[in-house]
Simulated assay, not measured.
Amino acid sequence: MFERRNIQRTYLKISREVKDFLLSDKSREFFIFLFFFFVAGGFWLLQTLNNDYEADFSIPVRLKGVPNNVVITSEPASELRIKVKDKGTVLLNYMLGKSFYPVILDYADYKGVDNQVRIYPSQFEKKVLNQLNASTRLLSMKPDTLEYIYSTGASKLVPVKLRGTLSAGREYYLSDTIFSPDSVLVYAPQGVLDTIAVAYTQPVKLEDISDTLRQQVPLRIQKGVKFVPSSIEMMLPVDIYTEKTVEVPLRGVNFPADKVLRAFPSKVQVTFQVGLSHFRQINADDFHIYVSYEELLRLGSDKYTVKIKNLPKGVSQVRFNPAQVDFLIEQVSLDYGD
């Protein structure tokens, strides 16, 4: 009850103060000033809008009537940027009231050369001028030429390839680069289509990757070429490095029938880095140390430096213990039967 009385008292007090202010001499002077201020502002605005100004506007561009057997591989510009000059009142009408209709290009109206169509200002400028007031001057249009390239159904499937650089964080590595889809359909005029073997991605630069990454990557835009789809999903599986050691025997190759390789030791320890997910899959049978007879003859010493030509996939940072082995080429007798 007490709170309600306080609220009523406060309301009545504020109402009286507002009423007294509105009926006071100061209030009348304030409203007279405000009235003349708005009148002066209105005159100033009308005077300002009566001057000539330049302004930029955009008009949409649409291509219609494309036959079913035609693929537009490079679209025309989606809009025309026009610069016009007129009185401020007219430009204000363009900004606030008038909306521009699209410039319609009918496919059947234009003939191309080598699957390329160029439409010059003289062929579409009238469609712009028809939407402007008679007093409006068209100063410029950009682009000043509309063009598009088409293919009459010629296409082929090409693989996707990465363009860019990828690097994993410390102690991690990228076990693969997977694209989905890994191939895309490419449409282009026949002469251009014959030169396309792969679809490259837009340049990609990713560093210090420490977790499996999925990313949508657009394909590189080429004039007169359309890829379907125009972007692909790239997955970068990331694995952590671990170290493993296996024992691998040295095997002689291309030795004459009466000679054999004797190596000391006959096996070496191969230590390497491999992703944790492949640790159990990689074993000694995946490594082959072949020593050719011809190579040993060229050495001129009895020490052979161990090396492997082909490493299993996912293996890196390989080292041998020992790095060199002693060897001799032993003559063996051939036992021929009767």
Results as ranks from 00 to 15, higher is better:
residue 228 V to L: 08
residue 229 P to V: 05
residue 230 S to M: 03
residue 231 S to T: 03
residue 231 S to D: 05
residue 234 M to C: 02
residue 235 M to A: 12
residue 238 V to Y: 03
residue 239 D to K: 05
residue 240 I to F: 13
residue 243 E to P: 12
residue 243 E to V: 15
residue 244 K to I: 15
residue 244 K to S: 13
residue 245 T to R: 09
residue 247 E to F: 14
residue 248 V to N: 12
residue 249 P to H: 11
residue 253 V to C: 03
residue 254 N to W: 02
residue 255 F to Y: 10
residue 255 F to W: 07
residue 256 P to V: 03
residue 256 P to E: 06
residue 258 D to E: 02
residue 259 K to C: 04
residue 259 K to T: 01
residue 261 L to F: 07
residue 262 R to A: 14
residue 263 A to I: 12
residue 263 A to T: 15
residue 265 P to E: 05
residue 266 S to A: 15
residue 267 K to G: 04
residue 269 Q to A: 15
residue 269 Q to E: 14
residue 272 F to N: 00
residue 276 L to D: 10
residue 276 L to T: 14
residue 277 S to W: 08
residue 278 H to E: 15
residue 280 R to P: 04
residue 280 R to Q: 09
residue 281 Q to S: 14
residue 281 Q to V: 11
residue 281 Q to D: 13
residue 282 I to G: 10
residue 283 N to G: 13
residue 283 N to P: 06
residue 283 N to I: 10
residue 284 A to T: 08
residue 285 D to N: 14
residue 286 D to G: 08
residue 286 D to L: 08
residue 287 F to D: 01
residue 287 F to W: 06
residue 287 F to H: 01
residue 288 H to G: 00
residue 289 I to N: 01
residue 289 I to P: 01
residue 291 V to I: 08
residue 291 V to C: 02
residue 291 V to H: 00
residue 292 S to C: 00
residue 294 E to R: 03
residue 294 E to W: 00
residue 295 E to D: 12
residue 298 R to D: 05
residue 300 G to P: 07
